[in-house]
Amino acid sequence: MSTEPILKARNLVKRYGKVVALNRCDFDLYPGEVLAVIGDNGAGKSTLIKALSGAIQPDAGEIWLEGKPIQLPSPIEARRHGIETVYQTLAMSPALSIADNMFMGREIRKPGWRGKLLKQLDRKEMERLARDKLNDLGLMTIQNINQAVETLSGGQRQGVAVARAAAFGSKVIILDEPTAALGVKESRKVLDLIQDVRSRGIPIILISHNMPHVFEVADRIHVHRLGSRLCVIDPKSHNMSDAVAYMTGAKEPDQHLETA
C-alpha cells in the first residue's frame, strides 16, 4: 500500500514477569480501513490493543500516529489524540445515566458564568447530543436518555459504548470483541455500526474471535501469534480456514505475506 499508515507501531515489547505478551510486534492501520486483529487465546491481542489505547505501556517499541511518534501514558492521553476504545467490559458506570456515561471525562459546561464560575454542567446540551448520536447510529430503541445504564440490555449497552467512541473518536476507533456477548440481531446492529463508522472515513481496529464477522467487515486481517504479527491477509483472497490455520500455527504463511 502506498499511503502512510495512520497508526503504526514497531517492535513493541511487553513482558509480565517471565511471560512475554508482546514480542517485537509490528502493527499498521491505514486510513479509512477496517483492520481485524485475530489470534488464539493468549496470543497477545489484548496486550497489543491495550498498548495502542494507552491502558498499558510497552517496555520497548514505538508508536506513530499520522507519522508522528506519540507516547500513550494513559487512556486519557490516547483519547486526547483521537484514539477511542470500546473495551470488552465497556467501561461504563452502571448507576449513571446514558448521557452521563457518554460524556464521562469530557463533560460540557453551561456557557457563561454558570459554567465558568459554578462549573455547572449543561445537561440539556449533553442529553441532546447523546440522543443525536444514538439516533445517528440507529439506536432508537433507547427511550430515555436519562435511564441508568444498568437498566439497558447487553446489546443496548454495547450500542451506547460504540456510539460514545464514534462520537468522539476522530482518528481511530478500537473495538475489542464488540459482538462477543450479543445475540444475532444485536450483532448485526454492531456490524452495521462498524460499516457506518467506516463510511465516515474513520478507521477501525476490530478484535474478534468471530470469523464470519471478521470476514464480513474487515478490509485486512492482522493475524497475531505468539506475541507478534504473523502476517496480514486479505479476506478476499483467503478463506476462514486459512486464517484459522495461520492463527493456530497449523500452517505457515507464504513469505511475501509477512510484510503485507
Binding site: A91, M92, S93, P94, A95, M104, G105, L118, L121
Partner: peptide, 24 residues
C-alpha cells in the same frame, strides 16, 4: 451538577471503568 460530582459517582461505581472512560 458538576463534572467532579459525576466523577465521584463513577469512581465509586466502578473505578476501572471510570478510568478507562477518561476519569482521573
Amino acid at each position: 451538577s458538576t463534572a467532579w460530582g459525576r466523577h465521584v459517582y463513577a469512581v465509586g461505581d466502578d473505578p476501572e471503568a471510570a478510568e478507562l472512560a477518561g476519569v482521573n
